[in-house]
Design a protein around this nucleic acid. Structure first.
Lengths: 162, 162
DNA sequence: CTTATACGGTACCAAATTAGTCCCCTATTG
DNA sequence: CAATAGGGGACTAATTTGGTACCGTATAAG
């Protein structure tokens, strides 16, 4: 159920690219251009790994790449129009919880006992919808510095304990 | 994004237990009792693996176990009241797409660039809801023997091709 | 037109998960 | 008390994943 580390990195980086950025210049096409090397430096993730990720995201049409000197990557669209489902699909393939899905047959060795070929689609559809509803913009929001629960605890210091 | 094979097996087996069953006897508590060995034979999954699975499902309160001769497993509740979310959580831990979740801190090494601690919760909540909405009963339904598309093709045999 | 920058692609290796196995213990029925 | 059936933990093999290396191609600046 957990998604792999690379996908996690990807979301963090995409959110980072999407955010305004400190030393913002003219910015081609209205969106920030960032190099893989920059991303690596900013994130601590090793450069070759970052490069691989960016590549995949570019192929999926989530990032637009510019080769050569002064090149780099920028979001292909506004963050509001990039969904989690898309990002995850780009890095982990189609969103489907099991192998016996989407018409692909013959992979399921226990077909004898498995009259549920179609039932998984219900689950997959549900999950896909859930992930379509969350955009990169949602993920880019800076949450309040302290979570609500901590704030509440601070407001009512030590009382009622014991 | 894919869930592991064991979880897949588990759903198949639970659905199997939930279904009426051919040689149904009196059935303790109104629900079918099945042994791990039976499940292994029916499914082709090796017995030790089945045993491990059933054990976990029993611990999670999804199956009720009966030890000793004539023992076995049965559903702890009606299939309508067992959700996918529950089954998945039982076998893969809490439903959360990333490690930096649910208050657990210190696992995320890239916290410097990662102002998204709370944002993942949106995604997790969405997925959890999606999986809560699908029950074991939904997964137990026998889909029509031929999928709609094949049926349509059969009704309109060879015409219009080429 | 040459050089430096930066992305593109492929193949490969090492480390971490995951699936599956083994062995022995405890409970229940007849 | 013998046979059946689940409970628990440790270990091993196989896959998957993350990360690396190397070389090619495009673009901008001088």
């Amino acid at each position: 159920m957990r998604l792999n580390r690379l996908t996690d990195y990807a979301v963090v980086m995409l959110a980072h690219i999407g955010r305004p950025g400190r030393e913002s210049g003219p910015e081609a096409g209205g969106r920030r251009v960032v190099t893989a090397a920059e991303m690596a430096a900013d994130s601590g993730v090793p450069l070759p790994t970052v490069a691989k990720l960016m590549k995949l995201l570019a192929q999926a049409g989530i990032l637009a790449s510019q080769r050569g000197a002064l090149g780099g990557y920028r979001l292909a669209r506004a963050p509001e129009r990039i969904t989690m489902a898309e990002i995850i699909a780009a890095l982990e393939g189609p969103i489907a919880l099991t192998a016996c899905v989407d018409g692909r047959e013959g992979d399921c060795e226990v077909e004898s006992l498995c009259p549920m070929r179609g039932n998984w689609d219900k689950v997959n559809r549900a999950v896909r919808q859930a992930l379509d509803a969350v955009t990169l913009a949602d993920m880019s929001l800076e949450p309040q510095r302290f979570p609500p629960v901590a704030a509440a605890a601070a407001a009512r210091p030590v009382a009622q304990a014991s």
